[in-house]
């Protein structure tokens, strides 16, 4: 008997500022994220998304993306075009259809 697939939420993810190089050189991705963190009842939040992206979508040099459970300092995050610092950062609870943008500021100008 197969277990039912867990419910997921569909997110639009975009990487820029050089971060796309870590993600198959592709800027835009659609991700189906489990709506709760596995083995818990915690709803999927931005912190979980970061770890999920690191483990499932990132192709190289994870240390340039994730550090201590959040994004590496110097990476900006926008949730539906708003600075995630106004949305509770990692504690933001993701909703179906959310658009999350990660921009590295670490590349030269």
């Amino acid at each position: 008997m197969s277990s039912p697939t867990p419910p997921t939420i569909r997110l639009q993810i975009e990487f820029s500022g050089g971060l796309e190089l870590l993600f198959s050189h592709t800027r835009k991705h659609t991700v189906n994220l489990p709506s709760t963190v596995p083995n818990s009842t915690r709803p999927a939040d931005a912190s979980y998304l970061i770890l999920y992206l690191r483990d499932n979508l990132l192709k190289e040099r994870p240390e340039l993306f994730e550090e201590k459970g959040t994004v590496k300092p110097g990476i900006l995050v926008l949730i539906n075009d708003t600075d995630w610092e106004l949305e509770g950062e990692g504690e933001y609870e993701l909703k179906d259809g959310d658009e999350i943008v990660f921009i590295s500021t670490l590349h030269g100008g």
Binding site: S16, G17, L76, L78, D83, V101, I103, T105, G109
Partner: peptide, 9 residues
Amino acid sequence: EKEIVMYAY
């Protein structure tokens, strides 16, 4: 830098 990047975005 954060504001420059946000401005560009």
